[in-house]
Nucleic acid binder design. Structure first.
Lengths: 167, 167
DNA sequence: ACTTATTAGTTAGCTAGCTAATTAGTTTGC
DNA sequence: GCAAACTAATTAGCTAGCTAACTAATAAGT
């Protein structure tokens, strides 16, 4: 996602407000701030994961596999849980496969299916990343009091539930 | 950005908490919620823009150009303001050029430089999109009271300022 | 003035997302 | 029991981001 570095100043907002009189400047600034903080945090997470040779997409796949009792799942199921298309999941699995973090196992009962299994290398990678990830998330979030956090989540949820105004 | 559809449930969190005892479950859930709402809203905006043949990257470029007095700027300056690499900006400009929404004009004083100019077609495209965009942003944000908005922005700013814990 | 450093833009090759089309295997319905 | 419908995964080709390397032009230093 693109992050607009240069949020508009008053002069610019006035130019736009003149041409587009229905604009609610406050609302727009708040909206842009939310998009930007989300994208900044996502970038920061990506940079953190890059230090371990991972990126968000591949990392989520490893986590989803670790959630499973037998450390296995199918590409379709992973795609659905991760919220990406099956085509994208094929690509993520390709990358993880090349690095030996997962393996493809063909399903004996239904030969259309694959089982994707977390390898011990993959588990070791998670064991390396996760403690540090949790430590940093805690440190990040601890600038908010629990009241502030609750209020933040409540506002975010309201916005998310209202997001179909854009459809 | 990938959006994890399947936020972890208690059973899963316990499995992870057992293996990684330092995890602060609350903090992680809040962090993931923030990432996900940001990415959802970004997607919703993309889908809206797709209806006009645009996407966020290209749309921001048009807006940045419209901000300029003479509707012109250089690729480097646009890249910096948009927060993308110059290579990415080259790609965005290629796309906009093909559709006639901007034009490349070589600088007579410094022949390394280009000026990118919003065409009248580009301005017309913005005039088509912006009023509806502003209307929908207002509608989206109006679910929050002004106190809630202020609190949201304040919390987001705190998190953003604290995001270097990840570096 | 001429070498060196800097700046501007592009290109190449990578990741990661998408849709649409394809291939292969399984189910269903008559 | 075979054709049609469906499901699973992949492939192809697109957008949009990145870094690194390259070309060309200008600026700076001696």
């Amino acid at each position: 996602m693109l992050q607009l570095q240069d949020l508009p100043d008053t002069k610019i907002l006035n130019k736009f407000a003149h041409r587009y009189p229905d604009a609610n400047i406050e609302h727009v600034l708040h909206f842009l701030t939310l998009l930007r903080v989300g994208s900044d945090l996502s970038d920061v997470l990506d940079r953190f994961l890059t230090g371990y040779g991972l990126l968000q997409g591949r990392w989520w796949v490893l986590i989803l596999l670790m959630r499973e009792q037998d450390l296995m799942s199918t590409p379709s199921s992973l795609a659905e849980k991760a919220g990406v298309s099956r085509a994208t999941m094929t690509g993520l699995i390709d990358g993880l496969d090349k690095e030996g973090l997962i393996m493809r196992v063909t399903d004996v009962n239904d030969r259309r299916k694959l089982q994707i299994k977390l390898t011990s290398t993959g588990q070791a990678k998670l064991d390396e990343v996760m403690p540090e990830y949790y430590r940093r998330v805690s440190e990040l979030m601890s600038v908010l009091s629990s009241e502030q956090s609750e209020s933040l989540i409540s506002s975010l949820t309201k916005l998310q539930n209202n997001s179909d105004v854009f459809k």
